[in-house]
């Protein structure tokens, strides 16, 4: 075993020389995640509202959507959209488009449940008070329900974001130029698997740590007296 360890010569050079490529790759992961997360929030909010609708015809499809999407592994979903849908519909997505579609849809199933929980956590009296002042359904959501929901859903939404960021690392499989692809290429060219994959592991842990800290700050800032 000792001999085997010694047989591997650490060579951090290729990784350190390409630090800028790694960071650029990481930026792709971050913005794809950010965009997908934003879309997932919009879509998820809509689905949450449908799930709370008084009409079963709206409630059930929303429920089925959430169950269905959450049952599909990300990788399967990615292949289904990138290879499967493309060939049926006859238009091909770019890898990055496919990734954004998959991450947004997957994320929306999770954010929908979070928003639903947040909206349900708000006392019914809030709606009554708002409606009694003559505010309509939409104004009630906008001025009374959502501002209160936001404060409840920030921590779990933060988890969703981190989940999507981790999911985004799969994009390199369909050749999106993210940090994982940079690491894979370094490994192929210089055979430094340990160094290359350590680098992206460190970047990912750092990103998650920074993001978690920002969520805590945001939570504290929005906290009501």
């Amino acid at each position: 075993m000792t001999a085997a360890v010694l047989a591997y010569v650490f060579n951090w050079g290729p990784v350190l020389d390409r630090w800028d490529e790694f960071l650029l790759g990481a930026w792709v992961d971050v913005w794809v995640t950010g965009l997908s997360f934003a879309l997932a929030c919009c879509l998820g909010l809509g689905i949450a509202v449908l799930r709370l609708s008084g009409t079963a015809l709206l409630r059930w499809p929303a429920f089925a959507y959430v169950q269905l999407i959450r049952g599909v592994p990300l990788l399967v979903f990615l292949y289904w959209v990138y290879f499967g849908i493309a060939i049926v519909v006859g238009l091909s997505f770019s890898p990055i488009e496919a990734a954004i579609i998959v991450l947004s849809l997957t994320g929306s199933a999770y954010t929908a449940e979070i928003f639903r929980g947040g909206l349900q956590a708000i006392d019914r009296g809030q709606v009554e008070a708002s409606r009694s002042l003559g505010l309509g359904r939409i104004a009630t959501y906008r001025h009374v329900l959502l501002p209160q929901t936001i404060r409840i859903v920030i921590p779990p939404l933060g988890n969703t974001f981190v989940g999507l960021l981790k999911g985004a690392t799969l994009m390199s499989i369909i050749a999106v130029q993210d940090m994982v692809l940079v690491a894979t290429n370094v490994n192929i060219n210089y055979f430094t698997p340990f160094e290359a994959f350590t680098a992206i592991a460190v970047i990912l842990v750092a990103l998650v740590a920074v993001f978690s800290a920002s969520v805590s700050v945001l939570e504290r800032t929005l906290r009501l007296p």
Partner: peptide
């Protein structure tokens, strides 16, 4: 918990 399974697998 911060790492994705894909990175584990590669690593």
């Amino acid at each position: 918990r911060a790492l994705s399974l894909y990175i584990y697998v590669l690593f």
